[in-house]
């Protein structure tokens, strides 16, 4: 009887494992393909296909070198551009939103509820809806095809959701901490950077990473607002690795991997904080 029970449990565990592994494989397979193709010569991929154990002798980093160095593609410059745009477009809105979220959490002012509702509303507007008026506005203001322009744009979108995100996190911090600091004579700005910010590091990092990834992966706004080659970001350049009549799969996959490596590395490094920051979002208060 007991043995029967154990074997039943074992079968169930096994079945569960098989199903989960199947799902995992389905997820991982495209990545394996991506990596395999990027480290093989074009010829070999075309002739032998990618779904096999690659021949160790033919492995090469040529595709990466080519994508980064060849002036025709010049991913190196666009990588630098992406770094500038994505980091500033995450740092600026997180700083601004942290201040706003502090006000929404700990200060009383007129029209607070209405303002907050407006922010939520802005969060829900589809980006595509705003692109034509923004384009005209940017052209008139001279912000078209500038880093300042696209950073401003991403920051504006970022402030809305980061304010919402951080406000929810700040609400999680006991109000008595803020009040104790007030009674002790701390100014609001002191409370903000000495009490609230140190306690919100996980949330700040989570917001930074999410916003960074979002901006890094953006293609739509980049296509509309960054035109000249030396200002284009990596997502635009990766698309151009694919010719009109000819696709160099090695080059394209290498470019894609270069492009997605940065958010992935960031996520891996700050994974611990990221989880804590996002987890608090779901905690019931």
């Amino acid at each position: 009887m007991k043995r029967n029970l154990i074997s039943k449990r074992a079968i169930r565990t096994l079945a569960l494992n098989v199903v989960v592994w199947l799902f995992a494989l389905a997820w991982i397979l495209p990545f394996i393909g991506l990596i395999t193709v990027s480290i093989l010569p074009y010829r070999e991929v075309i002739v032998k296909g990618w779904f096999r154990v690659p021949d160790l002798n033919s492995l090469t980093l040529n595709n990466y070198v080519e994508a980064l160095r060849n002036p025709l593609y010049d991913l190196a410059t666009s990588y630098r551009n992406s770094l500038i745009v994505a980091s500033l477009s995450s740092i600026i809105p997180v700083i601004a939103a942290a201040l706003a979220a502090y006000a929404f959490t700990n200060l009383d002012f007129r029209l607070k509820a209405l303002l907050f509702a407006t922010i939520l509303f802005i969060m829900m507007v589809p980006q595509q809806l705003t692109v034509v008026p923004l384009f005209l506005l940017y052209r008139n203001l001279g912000l078209y095809d500038t880093f300042q322009g696209i950073i401003l744009l991403h920051s504006a979108w970022g402030i809305a959701w980061v304010t919402f995100f951080l406000r929810n996190y700040f609400k999680f911090i006991p109000k008595s901490l803020v009040e104790a600091a007030r009674v002790d004579g701390a100014s609001e700005i002191t409370i903000f950077y000495r009490v609230i910010l140190p306690l919100s590091i996980p949330a700040l990092i989570a917001a930074l990473i999410m916003q960074f990834t979002w901006v890094w992966n953006d293609l739509f706004y980049a296509l509309v607002f960054l035109a000249s080659g030396d200002k284009q970001v990596i997502t635009q350049k990766v698309v151009m690795l694919k010719g009109e009549y000819h696709v160099d799969w090695g080059l394209l996959t290498a470019g894609s991997i270069i492009s997605m490596s940065t958010p992935l590395i960031l996520y891996m490094v700050f994974n611990k904080y990221f989880m804590r920051g996002v987890a608090a979002w779901g905690v019931k208060r």
Partner: peptide, 20 residues
């Protein structure tokens, strides 16, 4: 006056110690 300008000190029910 603001709380900080009143020269009062307060002990809270949950102590309100800064955990960091």
């Amino acid at each position: 006056l603001e709380p900080g300008d009143r020269d009062v000190a307060m002990v809270f029910q949950d102590y309100a110690l800064y955990p960091h």
